[in-house]
């Protein structure tokens, strides 16, 4: 079975949706594609969208694997808040003014702080994995626990305050440029390439699909479904932690209350828009990335077109609804093949 040829066909409609979203932006904002160089970095709407979509793209990739195993992880937003809070608390929350000059202090070495943040993300993920694979809880309930408790934990770490970070090197993750491109985009690309290689060049992709399609059958064929699910949740936690570090770095602060709020829904939506079925089994990482870009392009359009804030969510909902309809095979058949019966009802 060739996974690539399957995904190619399925990517067509998500790409169409993304193209339409981009065109809407271009229609209202002729400068949409213009890119210039400001402060050693590329500067333009397209760059913004890629940069802003980075956290959701990362989380959505982890989410894709979780969903492919018939699971779901609604705790990723809370994990974002926890990892951001840990990074901020460890790196430095005080501004020191010496002789009228603001100096940057870091409480713990930055590499250690980031490792700690990622480690805690992994722990959060493995906790979910343990509840789902070990205890046998339903994924939505299992991850609901951390979703609710996680924000409390993040608040505890930040002491209920917004912790401002005063350590310049840390800002690179969310604001820095490498060869003119925002660093966060490289992080996404790196995770995506590694994951695609793992999924397509090794048996891992097949295992994940098998577990999602039929856990019992996959167990009989020798796949350790429990261990696989355990680590897939762990990986999802890590992607959330990376996103948390990027977000904290981007705004130079950690906000236990609001960081990553509702992000789990954006990630799930990105997965769905990318053509992965929430029933598990077949999945498309590239589709997920496109899904995340569709969402961010849509938000960008809302900000720059002057949509009144009161109806933001309505506009978003309508567009998402239409995109989902476009992707629905059943609907297309209904429209184009006039009343011929759809076989096998998708």
């Amino acid at each position: 079975m060739n996974l690539q040829s399957i995904s190619k066909g399925r990517l067509f409609w998500p790409l169409v949706a993304l193209f339409l979203m981009v065109m809407v932006n271009f229609w209202f904002n002729p400068d949409f594609f213009s890119i210039k160089v400001v402060n050693n970095g590329l500067y333009g709407s397209v760059i913004d969208i890629l940069n802003r979509a980075a956290p959701v793209m990362l989380i959505a990739m982890g989410m894709t694997l979780v969903i492919a195993t018939r699971g779901i992880d609604i705790s990723v937003g809370a994990t974002v808040a926890i990892s951001g809070a840990i990074a901020a608390a460890l790196i430095g929350g005080s501004l020191e003014i010496k002789d009228g000059v603001q100096t940057y202090v870091s409480n713990t070495p930055m590499s250690l702080a980031i490792l700690a943040a990622l480690g805690v993300g992994l722990l959060c993920g493995l906790w979910n994995g343990f509840l789902v694979a070990g205890v046998g809880m339903q994924p939505i309930i299992a991850t609901l626990i951390l979703m609710v408790a996680g924000r409390g934990i993040a608040q505890l770490i930040t002491g209920g305050q917004i912790v401002t970070i005063y350590y310049e090197p840390f800002f690179f993750f969310g604001n820095g440029f490498f060869l003119g491109v925002p660093f966060a985009i490289y992080l996404v690309a790196a995770v995506a390439v590694v994951l695609l290689l793992l999924v397509h060049r090794t048996a891992l992709g097949l295992f994940v699909q098998a577990v999602g399609l039929n856990p019992t059958a996959s167990r009989f064929s020798g796949i350790s479904a429990r261990a696989l699910i355990f680590w897939v949740y762990g990986f999802c936690g890590v992607t959330a932690a990376v996103a948390g570090v990027i977000i904290a770095s981007n705004v130079k602060s950690a906000d236990g209350n609001n960081a990553g709020l509702m992000m789990e829904l954006d990630a799930i939506l990105a997965v769905a828009l990318g053509g992965t079925s929430l029933d598990g089994g077949r999945f498309s990482l590239i589709g997920t990335l496109i899904g995340a870009l569709i969402l961010q392009t849509l938000s960008y359009a809302i900000y720059s077109l002057g949509v009144p804030p009161e109806i933001n969510l309505v506009v978003k909902a309508i567009v998402v609804f239409v995109v989902c309809l476009i992707q629905s095979e059943a609907l297309r058949n209904m429209l184009f093949q006039r009343r011929t019966r759809v076989e096998g009802q998708a």
Partner: peptide, 14 residues
């Protein structure tokens, strides 16, 4: 802060 930054970015480009 995060949303303020994101929205302002879009404003500045448009």
């Amino acid at each position: 802060r995060a949303k303020g930054k994101e929205v302002m970015e879009a404003f500045l480009k448009a």
